[in-house]
Design a protein around this nucleic acid. Structure first.
Length: 120
DNA sequence: ACATTGACCGGTT
DNA sequence: AAACCGGCCAATG
C-alpha cells in the first residue's frame, strides 16, 4: 500500500487556520485544550505543530484566548511566562511540577452539537 | 535541492 | 520526573 504524504493545499491550509482560530475562540474561561486536539478537530490530526505556528504568528490570535492552549503534558508555551498567570487568574491551579492538571481542566467541544460544523 | 527549526506527540529508558 | 529518540510537517535559510 502506498503511503501518501499528508500535505495540505493552499486552500486547505487557509481553512485550517480559520478553523484553529474559531476553535480557540470557543475554549471556556478556566479550561484548557491541547494543540493535538485542535489539530484533530480541524481535520488534520498530524498537524499539531501547525496549530502552534498559527497561534504564534497569526495576528488574529492575539485577541483570542490562546493562553488556554497548552501541550498534552499541560505545559505552557515556551518563552511566554505570563501564560501561567493568565490561567491562574481564571482559577486554574497548577500542579507542583508546573503543569496544568489536564484531568481537571481539559476541555473538548461537544461533537453532537450542530454548530461544530459551522465553525468557519 | 537539502538542512534546520519549532507554542508538538508518543514511546522508551 | 527527565532525558532521550523517532516521527511529524510547514516554513525558513
Amino acid at each position: 500500500m502506498i503511503d501518501y504524504p499528508d500535505r495540505m493545499s493552499q486552500e486547505q491550509a487557509r481553512r485550517f487556520g480559520e478553523d484553529v482560530l474559531s476553535i480557540v475562540a470557543q475554549i471556556p474561561r478556566g479550561r484548557v485544550t491541547t494543540y493535538g486536539h485542535i489539530a484533530a478537530w480541524a481535520g488534520w490530526p498530524s498537524h499539531s505543530r501547525m496549530v502552534g505556528r498559527t497561534l504564534r504568528y497569526s495576528p488574529k490570535a492575539a485577541e483570542l484566548p490562546c493562553h488556554r492552549v497548552v501541550n498534552k503534558e499541560g505545559r505552557t508555551a515556551p518563552g511566554w511566562a505570563m501564560q501561567r498567570n493568565m490561567l491562574e487568574d481564571e482559577g486554574i491551579r497548577f500542579k507542583a511540577n508546573g503543569h496544568v492538571d489536564m484531568v481537571k481542566y481539559l476541555w473538548e467541544p461537544e461533537l453532537n452539537d450542530d454548530d461544530f460544523w459551522n465553525i468557519t
